[in-house]
Structure formats: structure tokens, C-alpha cells
């Protein structure tokens, strides 16, 4: 899209890796610092949308094909619900993480990690999907 704006392209190319890295930090460090799946998802989504704005939608689609993004959108939610069902099948309540590992504390840590990962994946994929839908509509 923006082939001529050299300054914009250079600056965002410098920034995008750090935005994505920061999103991953917010995701995986959410147990200790501020943040979590939702925040990480929107930051990652925003970073990717910035990339799509700068590089053009075709390049962005080659990086993340629509089918893949839609698949991720479903997978994140399934991961969350799946973790809930694992608890159910192991003889506890739905979404009880105590039974996921050999002792309850590790189970809770693992459960929260997986659930937050599911949230992050779905949120990021949903943001990108909505953006793609708008772009498709505008190009018609």
C-alpha cells in the first residue's frame, strides 16, 4: 500500500520486531508482571496489522494465510475449553487445574499458562481476521 513513505517503512520495520517480542513477553511473563493472554493478543494483533498496513495486504497474507488465521482463532478457544475438559476427565470440576500435574500448584501453573496461551492465540487471530475482512470488503 504505502510504497513511497520511506520514513514510515523504516521506522515501523525497526519497531515491529520489538512490538511482537513485547507481546510474547506480556504473554509468557503475565504470571509475574502485568499482562496476560488478552493484552498479549491485542498487542500481537496490532503489531501484525501495522505490518500489513506498511507492507501491503498481499505480503501480510503470505505471512499469515487466511485459513491459518481462522484455524488459530478456533484452536485458541479449543485449547481453553480443552484444558477445562482435561480437568473434567481427570475427576475434578470443569476448569479445575489442580489435577493437571502431579501436585496442585504445578497443575494450577500449567493450567493458567495453557489457558492464557489459548486466550492470546484467539484474540490475536480474531483481530487479524476482522482486519482482513474489512480490507477484503474495501478492495471489492
Amino acid at each position: 500500500m504505502v510504497r513511497r513513505h520511506l520514513v514510515l517503512r523504516v521506522v515501523s520495520k525497526l519497531l515491529i520486531p520489538f512490538i511482537l517480542l513485547f507481546a510474547l513477553y506480556v504473554q509468557f511473563h503475565g504470571d509475574f508482571g502485568p499482562g496476560g493472554g488478552f493484552q498479549a493478543g491485542v498487542i500481537f494483533g496490532a503489531g501484525f496489522i501495522l505490518y500489513a498496513l506498511i507492507e501491503g495486504i498481499e505480503v501480510a497474507r503470505r505471512v499469515a494465510p487466511t485459513a491459518l488465521v481462522r484455524l488459530l482463532m478456533v484452536l485458541g478457544l479449543l485449547l481453553y475449553v480443552g484444558v477445562g475438559y482435561v480437568g473434567l476427565f481427570k475427576g475434578a470440576n470443569f476448569l479445575n487445574y489442580d489435577v493437571l500435574a502431579h501436585d496442585p500448584v504445578h497443575g494450577q501453573e500449567l493450567g493458567i499458562f495453557l489457558v492464557e496461551l489459548g486466550v492470546g492465540i484467539t484474540v490475536a487471530a480474531t483481530m487479524v481476521t476482522i482486519f482482513f475482512a474489512f480490507v477484503d470488503q474495501a478492495r471489492r
Binding site: G30, D31, F32, G33, P34, G36, G37, F38, M73, V74, G76, L77, Y80, V81, G84, F94, L95, Y97, V105, H106, Q108, E109, G111, I112, V115, E116, G118, V119, T122, V123, T126
Partner: peptide, 27 residues
């Protein structure tokens, strides 16, 4: 839970159902 961040463990563990609902809304 072994997790020091109150927001994280309340949202993901104590309020797991609510967060699942929110995720479903976004989806």
C-alpha cells in the same frame, strides 16, 4: 497457584468460567 500476579490467577483460575465466556464473545 504458585503465581504471584493476583490479576492473572483470579482471571484464569478462580474466574475461569468468566474468562472462557469473554473469549467466546471475542471469537
Amino acid at each position: 497457584t504458585g503465581i504471584p500476579n493476583v490479576v492473572t490467577f483470579v482471571l484464569a483460575s478462580y474466574r475461569g468460567y468468566d474468562t472462557m465466556g469473554e473469549l467466546t464473545v471475542i471469537f
